[in-house]
Amino acid sequence: MRTRMRRVADGRERGTRKIYRQMIFMERYGLIIGMALLLSVSICAYLLARQAARNVKRFREDQHESFLGGKKP
């Protein structure tokens, strides 16, 4: 059983049709998906940081009150 698990895992023998299809799909498109994902993460991280940095700058110029009701200094 253990040997068969390894063989399935290695892709030499596919256990079910579902496993086979998903593995083949990743083997074909994995590189594109991976690169797109890495690019998305980088862009997303940058955009979120830029948005926050802009708002920090804006906050410095226009000081806000706390929502707890503190007065404007």
């Binding site: 698990m5 390894r6 892709g11 998903q22 593995m23 990743m26 083997e27 074909r28 590189l31 991976g34």
Partner: peptide
Amino acid sequence: VAYLFTKTFTTVTDKPYW
């Protein structure tokens, strides 16, 4: 490098790969 994105492997045989 493609090994990172295309090499499917699992020791779980009773469930779909995903």
